[in-house]
């Protein structure tokens, strides 16, 4: 069963990125569960796979407008798709780093993969509910999705 500590670790990883890299903290929205069907997937997704004590995926998915503003605030002038992919990849990387720090000894955490669209490529374990945690930043909202056995 998913534990509060595990969820908090992933959430902290995400908010930590916003606080440090995006120069403006993000707030955590009201978390909920997706029981049936696929959880939300926006235009850009950074994903890590987890094995070991737990098995499944964790991903951060955000919209193009949100990433555009983030890039601008980070002083990036080239608002290209590559840069947006890099950005969600970095967020995933920070989540991964946080998870490694907190329970890396029991977990195997993959290198982040980045998807532009392509929600069909995100495969969640069967019969497992996903936890969706909205990450609100300025007027935008991204999602952190945690789907672990």
């Amino acid at each position: 069963m998913m534990t509060k500590v595990e969820l908090e670790t992933f959430v902290e990883g995400t908010t930590h990125y916003f606080a440090t890299a995006a120069n403006q903290p993000a707030s955590v929205g009201s978390p909920y569960i997706v029981q049936e069907g696929r959880p939300t997937v926006q235009e850009f997704t950074g994903l890590i796979s987890i094995a070991g004590k737990r098995r499944g995926i964790v991903y951060f998915t955000a919209s193009r407008p949100m990433l555009t503003v983030m890039l601008m605030r980070m002083g990036e002038t080239e608002l290209t798709q590559e840069n947006m992919c890099d950005l969600v990849g970095e967020v995933a990387n920070t989540i991964s780093g946080n998870a490694r720090r907190d329970f890396g000894k029991d977990f195997m955490i993959s290198v982040p993969t980045v998807l532009a669209g392509e929600p069909e490529k995100i495969v969640t374990p069967d019969n497992i509910r996903s936890f969706v945690i909205p990450i609100n930043w300025r007027s935008h909202s991204a999602q952190l999705v945690v789907c672990l056995e």
């Binding site: 069963m1 998913m2 534990t3 509060k4 969820l7 908090e8 959430v11 707030s27 955590v28 929205g29 009201s30 978390p31 909920y32 569960i33 029981q35 509910r129 936890f131 945690i133 909205p134 609100n136």
Partner: peptide
Amino acid sequence: LSGSDFLPLVVKLDDLFN
């Protein structure tokens, strides 16, 4: 209150569903 405070709730909700 913030969303982080609600994390224990979803965990318990998941447990109840299960």
